[in-house]
């Protein structure tokens, strides 16, 4: 695979929750190094799309190929994909019974099989990367939301993933904590991480994204570079959406 080859490909992906069609004919490619921002009104299926990429939600039709592995019923393939794809959640989902440091150590230890002696060093390296080394011995319950989310970033980074997916990482945070988390994300982008983000901060999209994707009712309506997307939207629904969020 070339330096900038595709890492995620979705071809005609459809997904239903019961009778409700949550994703409609999604076609979508992420190349290595891309920073993608997905936006759209609520109910449009953005988190659903992100979560099908490591099969926390199974899709029913079409192909999803991540790092050369096709996602289908075989759990072995799914686990292979999950090892390469890091997912950051809206509600952090840190392990409350483990300290910050232990939270970071689980993936290298139990999934990657890194030798035990090297693990604390790896964990501290990534804690420093999210600028949070002082509180390694605390439990997640003792941290603020923004701090927890940064720890969650570090936990995901410890898996050494090829892509990071972000499922609304700032929407459960108090407003004053949003910027510390966004700064961390910008830092990751500058380090060259491949990122696919569902996020409501359009400032982040303008600053960092290579491409912005607009979804509505389970469909991709528009996909463009940020300048054209914000200055010159092609579709009426995009225009509506932008005028609504930019009013605030």
């Amino acid at each position: 695979m070339s330096e900038n080859g595709p890492i995620i490909e979705m071809c005609n992906v459809n997904k239903w929750y019961g009778n409700y069609r949550a994703l409609r004919d999604i076609n979508f490619t992420v190349n290595k190094g891309d920073k993608i921002v997905v936006c759209g009104p609520s109910g449009s299926g953005k988190p659903t799309m992100i979560r099908t990429l490591n099969w926390l939600e199974a899709h029913q039709e079409g192909d999803i190929i991540v790092d050369g592995v096709r996602l289908h019923d075989k759990m072995k393939d799914v686990d292979k994909v999950r090892m390469e794809v890091g997912l950051v959640f809206q509600h952090f989902n840190l392990f409350p019974h483990l300290t910050v440091l232990q939270n970071l150590m689980v993936a290298p230890m139990w999934v990657r099989g890194v030798p035990a002696a090297e693990i604390p060093e790896i964990a501290m390296k990534f804690l420093e990367r999210v600028r949070f080394p002082e509180q390694a011995k605390k439990y997640p319950g003792q941290l603020s939301g923004g701090q927890q989310q940064r720890v969650a970033f570090a936990r995901t980074l410890c898996m050494n993933p090829k892509v990071m997916l972000f499922d609304e990482p700032t929407s459960a945070l108090d407003p004053e904590m949003v910027s510390e988390v966004l700064d961390t994300m910008v830092g990751l982008a500058e380090d060259g991480m491949t990122m696919d983000c569902v996020i409501h901060e359009m400032g982040f999209a303008k600053a960092v994204a290579d491409r912005v994707i607009f979804m509505d009712a389970g469909e991709i309506i528009e996909e463009n570079d940020p300048v054209s997307f914000f200055e010159n939207p092609q579709n009426e629904r995009t225009l509506n959406f932008l005028s609504q969020i930019l009013q605030h």
């Binding site: 686990d79 959640f89 689980v106 993936a107 139990w110």
Partner: peptide, 12 residues
């Protein structure tokens, strides 16, 4: 979310 976090990291 605890299941999802674990499974998404490749925990069996």
């Amino acid at each position: 979310g605890q299941w999802e976090a674990s499974r998404s990291m490749g925990f069996k």
